[in-house]
Simulated assay, not measured.
Amino acid sequence: MLVLLAFIIIFHITSAALLFIATIDNAWWVGEGFFADVWKVCVTVNDTNCTVIDDQFSYYSTMQAVQATMILSTILCCIAFLIFLLQLFRLKQGERFVLTSIIQLMSCLSVMIAASIYTDRRQDIHNQNPAAYLYTSEGTFGYSFILAWVAFAFTFISGLMYLILRKRK
């Protein structure tokens, strides 16, 4: 049981790290001479010029939704870990980890919503902005975007593991 708990703790910490990297790092959409994330767009022609995505951009509300759900997912994952540690020693068998599982699955849902919105709306962005050349089809989804989907899978598996683990001694 101790090895299983150690594995779950490492798995959960890995999930949280993936969420932090996907939320913070700037490689959601990359191409030759530019990279973008949910916070800013950077052009790297001669040097790196970054423009923060704010209310000047017509797709700002879409990006706010992605930002908010990624932040919510990261916070929920961290809260689930703290609750896991508290429940580990406080609750009796059968009652353990249900709340942790629910919160972790909510984190999973949040990151899925964020990545889905970004996937869907990324195609519409290039038609709505003077900096549209940055979002042409010549770019590709970057590693932060992929990490967000991997974090979705990890948080989902972690949430299910907590449900299964609640009956173990």
Score class of each variant (00 low, 15 high):
residue 11 F to Y: 12
residue 147 L to E: 13
residue 31 G to A: 08
residue 20 F to N: 12
residue 82 L to G: 14
residue 35 F to H: 14
residue 15 S to K: 04
residue 54 D to L: 14
residue 165 L to W: 00
residue 94 G to Q: 10
residue 52 V to P: 00
residue 130 P to K: 08
residue 78 C to I: 15
residue 72 L to K: 00
residue 14 T to F: 12
residue 166 R to V: 02
residue 132 A to F: 08
residue 144 S to Q: 06
residue 26 N to Q: 10
residue 139 G to T: 04
residue 113 I to H: 12
residue 85 L to S: 04
residue 103 I to Q: 09
residue 99 L to D: 05
residue 62 T to A: 06
residue 62 T to R: 06
residue 45 V to I: 14
residue 50 C to E: 02
residue 69 T to P: 02
residue 39 W to V: 00
residue 44 T to Q: 13
residue 95 E to N: 15
residue 124 D to T: 11
residue 68 A to D: 12
residue 30 V to H: 01
residue 157 I to D: 02
residue 86 L to K: 09
residue 45 V to R: 14
residue 9 I to R: 02
residue 60 Y to Q: 07
residue 165 L to H: 00
residue 168 R to Q: 08
residue 2 L to H: 06
residue 157 I to G: 01
residue 151 A to S: 10
residue 97 F to W: 07
residue 110 S to L: 10
residue 134 L to Y: 11
residue 57 F to V: 05
residue 87 Q to W: 01
residue 42 C to V: 02
residue 119 T to D: 13
residue 1 M to V: 13
residue 84 F to Q: 03
residue 91 L to I: 00
residue 78 C to K: 01
residue 55 D to C: 03
residue 161 M to V: 15
residue 82 L to P: 03
residue 111 V to Q: 08
residue 116 S to C: 15
residue 118 Y to C: 04
residue 126 H to Q: 09
residue 106 M to W: 10
residue 148 A to G: 11
residue 83 I to G: 10
residue 128 Q to R: 12
residue 42 C to E: 05
residue 144 S to R: 07
residue 131 A to N: 11
residue 83 I to V: 15
residue 22 A to Y: 02
residue 92 K to R: 12
residue 112 M to P: 00
residue 42 C to S: 07
residue 50 C to V: 00
residue 38 V to E: 03
residue 66 V to P: 01
residue 115 A to Q: 03
residue 46 N to D: 14
residue 110 S to D: 06
residue 64 Q to D: 03
residue 99 L to I: 06
residue 113 I to P: 12
residue 113 I to R: 13
residue 36 A to C: 08
residue 13 I to F: 14
residue 61 S to C: 01
residue 24 I to T: 05
residue 42 C to R: 05
residue 156 F to R: 08
residue 38 V to H: 04
residue 66 V to L: 01
residue 34 F to I: 04
residue 37 D to N: 11
residue 40 K to C: 07
residue 161 M to L: 15
residue 121 R to C: 05
residue 74 T to G: 13
residue 21 I to L: 14
residue 111 V to D: 06
residue 89 F to G: 11
residue 92 K to G: 02
residue 85 L to G: 07
residue 80 A to Y: 09
residue 51 T to E: 04
residue 135 Y to H: 06
residue 109 L to I: 15
residue 67 Q to K: 13
residue 79 I to E: 10
residue 150 V to P: 03
residue 48 T to L: 15
residue 15 S to W: 08
residue 159 G to K: 08
residue 158 S to A: 11
residue 38 V to S: 08
residue 97 F to H: 07
residue 116 S to N: 15
residue 154 F to G: 01
residue 76 L to H: 03
residue 77 C to M: 14
residue 99 L to K: 12
residue 72 L to P: 00
residue 14 T to R: 01
residue 98 V to T: 14
residue 136 T to D: 11
residue 107 S to Y: 04
residue 28 W to C: 06
residue 92 K to Q: 08
residue 137 S to I: 13
residue 77 C to A: 15
residue 136 T to G: 15
residue 89 F to N: 11
residue 18 L to R: 05
residue 22 A to E: 02
residue 65 A to Q: 06
residue 41 V to I: 12
residue 139 G to W: 07
residue 139 G to F: 09
residue 149 W to V: 05
residue 10 I to V: 15
residue 124 D to Q: 12
residue 85 L to I: 15
residue 133 Y to M: 11
residue 152 F to H: 01
residue 103 I to R: 04
residue 19 L to I: 03
residue 30 V to R: 03
residue 123 Q to N: 09
residue 147 L to G: 09
residue 168 R to E: 12
residue 57 F to H: 13
residue 97 F to V: 03
